[in-house]
C-alpha cells in the first residue's frame, strides 16, 4: 500500500504526518547550529570569566580590568561614532540617489541597480584597496587638488578618520541603497502626483510624503550600514592605520598578538552588546515610525 493511497483515504491524518516530517527537516541545520554556533558563543562567554591568559583562574578580573580602563570606553565610543558617522554619510549621499532612481525609466533603473550591486559583490578588500589608491599621497585626490593648485603639499587622508569615513561610505553604500530602493519602488506614484497637484513643492513632497513613507527602508539601511561599518576590520586597519583603534582591532590584538583570550572575549562581548543595542534601538524607532504611519 503506498502512502498516496493512505493519503487519499485519510487526508487529515496524512497532513499531520507531513507536518511532523516537515518540521524534522530542520534538524540537521539545528544540530550544525548548536555545535558550530551556539556552543562556541557560550564558550566565549565562559572564557571571559577567567582571570589569566592560560584560562585556569575563574573570576571577574578580565571584566574589571577592561571596564576599569578609560581607554576601553574611548575605543567603544570611537567605534560607535564611526558607525554613526558612516550611517549619516550614506544617508546624505545615498538617499538622493534612491530618489533619482525612482524617476528613471526602467532601462536606466536596471543599469543603475547593476552599478549599485556590482561593488557589493566585490571583495571588501578590493574596495578598501581602491581607496588606498584614491586617498594616498600620490593618489587621485591629492594629484587632482595639486594640479588645480588648491593645495601645494599633499593632504594626509590615509590614517585619518575622515579618510576612513569617506571610504566606508562607498564600501557600505549598497547596504543602504538596496533596502531603500526596495521600499521606495513600492510607494504609490499617485501620492507624489497628488501632493504636487495640491500645490506642494518637490521639497515639501519629499519631507512630508516620501521620507515618512520610506522610513522602514531607511531604518533597515541604517541598521545594515551601522553593523557593517563598526565591524569592518580590514578597512579600519588598512585605511585607519594602527593609531586609530576600534574594537575589532583591539579584539584582534588581544587574541592573536597578546594571546589574552579572556580579555579578547570581554572586548568582543562588549562589541556585540554595544552594536546590538544600537541596532535594537534603531529598529524600535523604525517599528514606532511605521506604526505611527499606519495609525
Amino acid at each position: 500500500m503506498t502512502s498516496a493511497a493512505i493519503g487519499a483515504s485519510l487526508p487529515g491524518e496524512q497532513r499531520r504526518w507531513f507536518r511532523l516530517a516537515e518540521w524534522q527537516l530542520a534538524l540537521p541545520l539545528s544540530l550544525a547550529f548548536a555545535g558550530l554556533f551556539l556552543a562556541p558563543l557560550l564558550l566565549l562567554v565562559a572564557t571571559s570569566f577567567f582571570d589569566d591568559d592560560k584560562i585556569t583562574q575563574p573570576g571577574f578580573a578580565s571584566w574589571l580590568k577592561f571596564f576599569g580602563d578609560p581607554f576601553s570606553y574611548k575605543v567603544i565610543l570611537d567605534t560607535l561614532l564611526l558607525g554613526l558617522k558612516t550611517v549619516c554619510a550614506t544617508v546624505v549621499i545615498g538617499y538622493p540617489l534612491a530618489l533619482v532612481y525612482l524617476d528613471l525609466p526602467p532601462r536606466l533603473q536596471k543599469v543603475l541597480l547593476f552599478i549599485i550591486v556590482l561593488p557589493m559583490l566585490l571583495s571588501v578588500v578590493v574596495r578598501t584597496f581602491a581607496w588606498i589608491v584614491v586617498l594616498g599621497r600620490e593618489g587621485v585626490v591629492n594629484q587632482t587638488l595639486q594640479w588645480l593648485g588648491v593645495i601645494s603639499e599633499p593632504l594626509k587622508l590615509l590614517q585619518t578618520e575622515l579618510g576612513l569615513v569617506i571610504s566606508l561610505t562607498q564600501i557600505e553604500m549598497p547596504l543602504m541603497l538596496l533596502p531603500l530602493i526596495s521600499v521606495m519602488s513600492r510607494l504609490d506614484p499617485n501620492l507624489r502626483d497628488a501632493s504636487a497637484a495640491l500645490g506642494a513643492s518637490r521639497w515639501r513632497t519629499l519631507f512630508t510624503v516620501i521620507v515618512p513613507l520610506s522610513m522602514p527602508g531607511l531604518i533597515a539601511g541604517c541598521l545594515l550600514v551601522f553593523a557593517s561599518a563598526t565591524t569592518a576590520f580590514i578597512s579600519q586597519t588598512v585605511i585607519g592605520g594602527v593609531r586609530l583603534i576600534y574594537l575589532p582591532l583591539l579584539i584582534w590584538q588581544q587574541s592573536l598578538v597578546v594571546y589574552h583570550w579572556p580579555l579578547a572575549a570581554v572586548a568582543s562581548l562588549s562589541l556585540v552588546v554595544s552594536v546590538l543595542s544600537v541596532i535594537a534601538a534603531l529598529s524600535w524607532l523604525g517599528r514606532r515610525s511605521s506604526r505611527h504611519l499606519h495609525a
Partner: peptide, 20 residues
C-alpha cells in the same frame, strides 16, 4: 541639489573601482 548629490553618489560608487 538632489540630482547633483546623486551624480556625486554614482561617482563615489564607481570611481574607486575604475581607479584600482
Amino acid at each position: 541639489v538632489i540630482g547633483g548629490i546623486a551624480v556625486l553618489a554614482v561617482l563615489i560608487i564607481v570611481s574607486p573601482v575604475i581607479v584600482a
